[in-house]
Simulated scan of single mutants.
Amino acid sequence: MGTRADTIAHLLDALAPLPLAARKMFGEYALYLDGKVVALVCDDLLYLKPTPGAKAALPGHATGHPYPGAKLHLLVTDALDDPDPVIAALRGIAADLPAPKPKKPKT
């Protein structure tokens, strides 16, 4: 089915306190914070990486697979109802993940 661009625009607007960036990948989207992939949006659903920071901000949250063969992620269906816990979870994920590796220069 694929994620619609208006879903991404709506999510980025609701989570506006964060400098999130979205990149389209294979008909779905990855959300980046501080250059790190912190979430996926697949079939118009928001999936957060299940890091300790995310689990602490969203205890007991439902999980799901963003695509067949993927690891379990936290499934956030109410992100727009109360974005503050989701924003805290996204900040926690970014803090938990290592810095992105520098890209090799092209020769």
Rank of each mutant, 00 (worst) to 15 (best):
D13A: 15
D13M: 14
D13K: 15
A14F: 01
A14R: 14
L15F: 04
A16E: 14
A16F: 07
P17Y: 14
P17E: 08
L18I: 14
L18H: 07
L20W: 01
L20C: 04
A21I: 11
A22L: 00
K24S: 06
M25T: 15
M25Q: 12
F26M: 14
F26A: 14
F26N: 11
F26Q: 13
G27W: 05
G27Q: 11
G27E: 08
A30Q: 07
A30I: 13
L31H: 03
Y32H: 15
L33G: 14
G35V: 13
G35K: 06
G35M: 07
K36T: 09
A39P: 06
L40S: 02
V41W: 00
V41M: 10
V41K: 02
C42P: 08
C42E: 10
C42Q: 08
C42V: 11
D44G: 09
L45D: 14
L45E: 15
L46Y: 05
L46R: 02
L46T: 10
Y47N: 03
Y47R: 00
K49E: 01
K49D: 01
P50K: 07
P50Y: 02
T51V: 11
P52E: 13
A54V: 09
A54L: 08
A56D: 15
L58E: 05
L58G: 09
G60N: 11
